[in-house]
Amino acid sequence: MNIRILKDKIAGRTMLVLTLVSILLAVLVAWGLFYRSLPLLENYSLTDLLTSSAWKPEKGEFGFLGFIMGTLWVTAIAIILALPLCLLVSIYLSEYAHPRLRKLIVPVVDLLSGIPPVLFGVWGVLFIIPLIQDHIAPSFVDNSAGYSVLAGGIVLAIMIFPLLITLFLEVFSTVPRDMLNASLSLGATPWQTVKKVLLKKAMPGMIASTVLAISRAFGETIAVLMVCGGNVPGIPHSVFDSGYPLPVLIANNFGETFSVPLYDSALLFAALLLFVIIFIFNAVSRIILARVKRKIE
């Protein structure tokens, strides 16, 4: 056989194997988590685990609702804060900013994404917590220590800022310049062009970017741990309540309290929950994405 054809075959097969291995890894992780959660699932009904918020491992009470809600609150706040701001910043940089300004700002944004999460955590403790405690919370509630889901959401929002902006800019750059020019040459203002053409054409990519950012927000641990004040499990009732998201639960307790029966199983169930939440979230957004794509194409 011709040697270059042989090389091509080998390359193709090798890449196939590597692809399969990477998929297998995800399956293995899910299976491993499920396997280790089994002891808990055999002793409690899934409904109880998901709908109760009572968390007293030493008394055998495992209710995950508080942690699930903590995760959802923090992530929702982060995305509600980050999305509009990132959108406007990206539109400005892509359509309005002078190229020189763009060249100056984009590397700074990239740099932000390289800052380790723990620094965001410290920054949150030093600036966001006092800000909430002294200035924001007093206008709404009587008493807040500042450590809250709001603080977690704000810090997380700032952490996903650079990711979202970079992704949005990338998506905008795929919209053909001539398509935008077509709109402009009909006498549309740049803002009309942004609203009716750019955002419409970029919508599928923007959804995909947002999904990526939210997925990242779901799993973020250390910075959230530092500002959410999660020591007392429970469902947050306002944005000024402390929260205890799933990743924080795992990081705080893993490896420490395994003398308590079923505790380790419960923590791995928490990990499984996180996995499932992200999985479902990604699946749903893929369906939405396909719909949007079909609609505009």
Partner: peptide, 8 residues
């Protein structure tokens, strides 16, 4: 333009 660019 050189290539048609229908709006989306």
């Amino acid at each position: 333009s050189q290539r048609p660019f229908p709006l989306p």
